[in-house]
């Protein structure tokens, strides 16, 4: 994928996916991430994995 103001590489998308779990993203970042996830199946997969890891961690010891 080309890079630019709107198009971000997967690496940056992963950083934003993580950041989003800890605080609300800035509007620009939110849009860039949303756009990236629309077109990148692999990062959409990582998004589901991040959610899954959170669920799993909350059940640690239960």
């Amino acid at each position: 994928m080309k890079q630019g103001w709107l198009l971000i590489p997967c690496r940056h998308a992963h950083e934003l996916l993580s950041e989003r779990m800890d605080k609300p993203l800035a509007p620009g970042d939110r849009f860039r991430l949303w756009l990236h996830l629309k077109v990148c199946d692999m990062c959409a997969r990582v998004e589901r994995q991040m959610d899954f890891m959170r669920r799993a961690m909350r059940r640690l010891g239960d």
Partner: peptide, 22 residues
């Protein structure tokens, strides 16, 4: 983990059904 263009060297695997894993 990443190529210079920011893509992953190995694509992430499909982790399947979360409920089944949990």
């Amino acid at each position: 983990l990443y190529r210079p263009d920011g893509h992953r060297v190995h694509p992430p695997l499909d982790w399947g059904d979360p409920e089944a894993t949990l």
